[in-house]
Design a protein around this nucleic acid. Structure first.
Length: 201
DNA sequence: GCTGCGATTGACT
DNA sequence: GTCAATCGCAGCT
């Protein structure tokens, strides 16, 4: 199991190591475990205009500035929840957005939470889908990943890692300037995401 | 206090 | 491929 010290590092350094890690969320309905296949790194302050914490700490982003190993869950587009793991020592507000994963345990439960998923690989392919499949509500923003109902297990074998531009980050934070998206090449649960639906060339 | 927009998804043409 | 849904936050008046 990863410990908190292992997460107390810069998001960009840590991201490749979290690929392949297993994240479990337990509820009264049962457990769901995902193997992380795609993440994005965000640095909260200064240099990273794509980060929610770019303009400094707000009530919303306070969790990102706190202790590593906590969950930063946020609500967006009026209907979706996305989940981050806070990393780095307190201060820089680095975080890793969990973009996609493969359900390795609790597939039936995950499928019941995501009735619109056509195939199993769609269950956690996408940040909001992953949060939904794991059953993580917005209310668990700030929760500690190193205590119930969460568990985080490092990958036993380091997978191949690819990196590239982040997805869905508009404006100066997007594009090749910040190639902080990391994924496991060839994994079917990692999609080539379309550009942001509202963006425009 | 008011307005615009977002680290997206799912439905429809 | 294109587009609406939907609401909290951040920034401005």
């Amino acid at each position: 199991m990863l410990d908190r010290a292992a997460l107390s590092r810069d998001a960009v350094e840590l991201a490749p190591e979290l690929l392949g890690a297993l994240l479990t969320h337990s509820t009264s309905e049962g457990d769901v475990t995902v193997r992380l296949t795609e993440v994005e790194a965000y640095r909260g302050t200064g240099e990273d205009p794509g980060s929610h914490a770019h303009r400094g700490m707000t009530p919303r982003t306070a969790v990102m500035f706190g202790e590593p190993g906590h969950l930063y869950a946020y609500f967006t587009y009026g209907m979706h929840t996305c989940v981050n793991i806070v990393c780095s020592p307190a201060g820089p507000a680095s975080a890793l957005l969990l973009r996609a994963g493969e359900i390795v345990d609790g597939v039936e439960l995950a499928r019941s939470r995501r009735p619109s998923a056509v195939s199993d690989r769609d269950l956690a392919r996408g940040p909001a889908r992953l949060a939904s499949a794991l059953g993580i509500p917005l209310a668990e923003n700030g929760a500690d990943l190193f205590s119930e109902p969460f568990a985080l297990l490092a990958s036993d074998a380091a997978p191949d890692v690819a990196s590239g531009p982040r997805v869905g980050v508009s404006g100066a934070g997007g594009g090749a300037a910040y190639p902080w998206r990391f994924w496991i090449p060839g994994d079917p649960t990692v999609s080539v995401y379309r550009r942001h639906a509202r963006s425009h060339d």
